[in-house]
Structure formats: C-alpha cells, structure tokens
Design a protein around this nucleic acid. Structure first.
Lengths: 157, 157
DNA sequence: TAGTTCTCGACTAGAACAGTTGGTTAATTC
DNA sequence: GAATTAACCAACTGTTCTAGTCGAGAACTA
C-alpha cells in the first residue's frame, strides 16, 4: 500500500464527486475548480479510476463522472489502490513477499513492513467516501509528537 | 508521518545495529556490507539519527555507532521521524493542521489524513527495535487484497 | 605518523510528481 | 449539420526526491 500525494488527490476528487453528485454526472472541470487541481491531471487520475471500475463516465455535454457504487460502498482504500500502480519490488517492498532476499533468506524488517501495510490497508478500507463526506472519521487525534527547538524529535507520551 | 524507502533503509540499518552491537560501536562499513546499502548513503542517514539523539558516535579505529538508548527503548517511529524531514505543507499535509485551506476553511479529507497519520504513528511507536530483532511483530497478515487478471483491484473480504 | 572511522558539503542519474499541450472521439444543443 | 461540451489519449516538461558518488577534513587509536 503506497501512500502518495497522488492518492490523496484522487481521494479529494472522489469525495468532491460524492458530495456534488445527485444522480447526475459531475464534470472534471467542476471538480478541478473546486479542489484546485489541474484538469489534465485529474483526467489522468480518473482514467485509472475508470479502468479499475471505481467510476463510470458519461460523454458529451452534461456528461462527467459518476460513482460506480454508492459512496457508502466505495472505500478510500479502493481509490488509492486504483491510482497508485503496484510498485515494482525494490529491496523489501511492503506488499509483496518477494524481493527482500539479499543474501539472507528474508530481511529482519520484513514482518514489520508487512504488518504496517496491513494496518494502513485495514484503516483505509474501513473508511468509505460517505464517512469522509459526513465527517465521520473518528478523531483519536491530538498532538502526538513534536520537534523541540533544536529540531530533534520528541514524543508526548 | 511520511513513509519512504529512506525511512525503511534507516530502520533496516538500526535493526542491524541493534543486532550486532554487544556494547561495542558498530562501524557503518559493516552495516553497509551486511544490509547492502551504500556506505555514503548510510552516512547521511546516520548524520540525521545522531542529530536527533537516536544514536551516538565514536570516532577513530574501532569506532562506529551505538544506540543512544536500549533497543527496547528505541521505537521504530523515532527512527523514521529522524531521517524523514518534516514535510513542507503542500496542499493538505497529514501532520500539520495548516496548509489545506484553499478557499474553504478546511478540506473535506483533512480529518482522514490526520487520523491515518495517527494510526501509522501509533503502530510504529508501539514497535521497538528489540521487537523487530526478536521477530515479535504480530502477524495479522494474510493476503488482504489482490488484483484480478485485468489488473483491477479486488479485496478479499 | 599511519590508518581507521566519522563528519560534512557538493554533486549526479534516475524516477516520480504535478502539470501542460494538443489533439481525438462521443454526445448534446442550436 | 455545425458548434459546443466533455471525456479520452499520448507525449512532453519543470521540479522534487531518492539513492548514490566524490572529495576533503577531523578525531581517534596503534
């Protein structure tokens, strides 16, 4: 599970879509203006989303994009997986079980990345677009960590 | 909380350090060879780790790096925060509460990224270097998602 | 003094990100 | 049927980050 600004842009746009679609298609031009993302970049992202069956498209005037499923059934994880290509296995890629065998059989940190990837995926697939729209994202929040005046990392335990 | 291969390299190196240090300093040359990471790149990373008080250094022959605290008290999150500079707030940066006010007061997905960042941080600070060394990273694991033959994303629920 | 190891800064090829440009195709409206 | 709308598509670009290289120096040990 890769986390990039690309995935975040896609989620922002999809939330916008979920918010402003009342059964009618929403044009990317509108989304671009509201979210202040370039139209052409959105086109690239929605190309991916369409190929992955997350949205459907309607061409021509009054056209645009529609959620393929309801906002409640579209999970944030689906959106991110659709736009972020599965990464090619470098050294020890979180998702795949191959790739991290240098000279040892399996790198020491393998389980850690695997587990972290699962945690992230579990969280993001527990959240639907509807949850985001209705601001139903539980706030455990609070300042959990800071940097001191010298720039060093300090945690508030 | 930024997740990059850079942070992963740092954690791999720190786990190596925790594994091979029996009170004596471990030279970066040894770590580089074992982990197959370039020495000069490691030097950059350990410069950051030292400035953030994660490791201490000993110069000269027989020198190297030592954990500043015990492996049990050094958390994976600390390592990653030390090497990954706090990102400059682009549009809606997960960590900081500023930055995502385009024309609205606060973007719809803000809470989502904030909460995700917290989830990741909580997980990574619950794991110490000792946990990784002793392979004590709980495996909720299993294949949670896949792509079908057309490359589309599908989840195993 | 020689050799080891850390320390520091500048530089680099390659990749990814975010966006641009310039088209085409399909549907609607005039 | 012509003009307009908006999805589609491909190639290209400036910027940033990654991962690494290179060179010089400073501290310590033998």
């Amino acid at each position: 599970m890769k986390l990039s600004t690309k995935g975040r842009y896609a989620v922002m746009a999809m939330v916008d879509l979920a918010t402003h679609s009342d059964g009618k298609p929403v044009s990317l031009g509108d989304v671009a203006e509201r979210q202040e993302i370039s139209l052409s970049y959105l086109e690239q992202l929605f190309g991916r989303l369409r190929k992955n069956g997350i949205v459907t498209s309607v061409r021509g005037p009054g056209g645009g994009y529609l959620l393929a499923r309801s906002a409640r059934d579209t999970r944030v994880a689906d959106v991110i997986l659709a736009v972020d290509e599965p990464i090619k296995a470098t050294r020890c890629t979180p998702g795949s079980s191959t790739g991290c065998r240098g000279r040892q059989q399996r790198c020491l940190t393998h389980d850690l990345w695997e587990e972290l990837g699962n945690q992230i995926y579990l969280f993001l697939s527990s959240v639907s677009l509807a949850d985001v729209v209705e601001r139903r994202v539980l706030g455990t929040s609070g300042m959990l960590f800071q940097r001191d005046h010298e720039g060093r990392v300090a945690a508030n335990r």
